[in-house]
Amino acid sequence: MFTSRRLIIAATAVALLSGCATQQNPYDNQGQAQNTSGGMSKTAKYGGIGALAGALAGAAIDHNHRGKGALIGAAVAGAASAGYGYYADKQEAALRESMANTGVEVQRQGDQIKLIMPGNITFATDSSAISSSFYSPLNNLASSFKQFNENTIEIVGYTDSTGARQHNMDLSLQRAQAVSTYLTSQGVDATRVSVRGAGPDQPIASNADANGRAQNRRVEVNLKPIPGQQYPQQ
């Protein structure tokens, strides 16, 4: 039991070191990474978090050898998280540059990059026809997605709460499909893309006024690692 505890403590150290280690980024030719975490890069932070989660999972799975399981889990999960973290760092920086002054917001949430496209540039009210102001951001997105082609692309359409729910669900899906169709027509691999309509669910502003409803009539694009894919660390 004492040895097992020592190994779990060691695994925790591995997790922390996985997050703090500085390694050469293998995606240096795909944009310029940014360090926005007060001295610790997102790659390091998410690699360490992944390693710690892996340590706990490894200990839980191997009940008879918790310490060894924790060490293995820390090493494997930490490497995987840090590897994709490198990739996401580069993609995030490139997207922030290409989406500047377009009205599209870029958010980073762990291993996921989220692009929020507000209703004032995407679609007219009660329409799934792409607005003329939306083509330029979409063209920039298509170029980025072809350059950074190692993650999945989930497109989610939203509406405000005005009108019948089923109509809004259908409209939001049509908007997501319109974005998907345009991106794939510009050369984005269709096998990476999925679409979903969320209608009025998950509003980001109040539906009580016109400004809030415009914010809720949005399209979001979620970029995530491909399940099972190995992302190099160096």
Rank of each mutant, 00 (worst) to 15 (best):
Q34H: 08
Q34R: 12
Q34V: 12
Q34G: 05
N35V: 13
N35E: 12
N35H: 07
N35D: 15
N35M: 10
T36A: 14
T36L: 15
T36V: 11
T36P: 00
T36C: 06
T36R: 13
S37Y: 14
S37V: 13
S37A: 14
S37M: 15
G38P: 01
G38Q: 09
G38I: 06
G38K: 04
G39A: 13
M40I: 15
M40P: 00
S41M: 07
S41D: 06
S41E: 01
K42T: 10
T43N: 04
A44P: 01
A44I: 05
A44D: 02
K45A: 14
K45N: 03
K45H: 07
K45T: 09
K45Q: 11
Y46Q: 06
Y46M: 13
Y46L: 12
Y46E: 07
G47S: 04
G48V: 00
G48C: 03
G48Q: 00
I49M: 11
I49N: 03
A51I: 01
L52V: 10
L52M: 14
L52N: 03
A53E: 01
A53S: 04
A53Y: 09
G54E: 00
G54S: 06
G54F: 05
A55S: 12
A55W: 02
L56S: 08
A57G: 12
A60M: 15
A60D: 06
D62P: 00
H63K: 14
H63A: 15
N64R: 11
H65M: 08
H65G: 11
R66I: 05
R66D: 01
R66M: 15
R66C: 06
G67Q: 08
G67N: 07
K68V: 11
K68Y: 12
K68I: 13
G69W: 11
A70P: 01
A70M: 04
A70R: 05
A70G: 06
I72S: 07
G73S: 08
G73F: 09
G73L: 05
A74K: 00
A74W: 01
A75T: 12
A75M: 09
A75I: 12
V76H: 08
V76Y: 10
V76K: 08
V76D: 02
A77H: 07
A77E: 00
A79Q: 03
A79D: 05
A79V: 12
A80E: 08
A80G: 04
A80M: 12
A80Q: 10
S81F: 15
A82N: 10
A82K: 15
A82F: 14
A82W: 06
A82G: 07
G83N: 05
Y84I: 11
Y84P: 03
Y84N: 02
G85S: 07
Y86E: 05
Y87I: 05
Y87V: 04
Y87P: 04
A88N: 06
D89L: 03
D89V: 02
K90S: 15
K90G: 09
K90T: 14
Q91L: 14
Q91H: 09
E92S: 09
A93K: 06
A93S: 14
A93F: 08
A94F: 14
A94I: 02
A94Y: 12
L95K: 07
E97C: 03
E97Q: 13
E97F: 03
E97R: 07
E97Y: 05
S98H: 05
S98P: 00
M99D: 06
M99R: 09
M99K: 07
M99V: 08
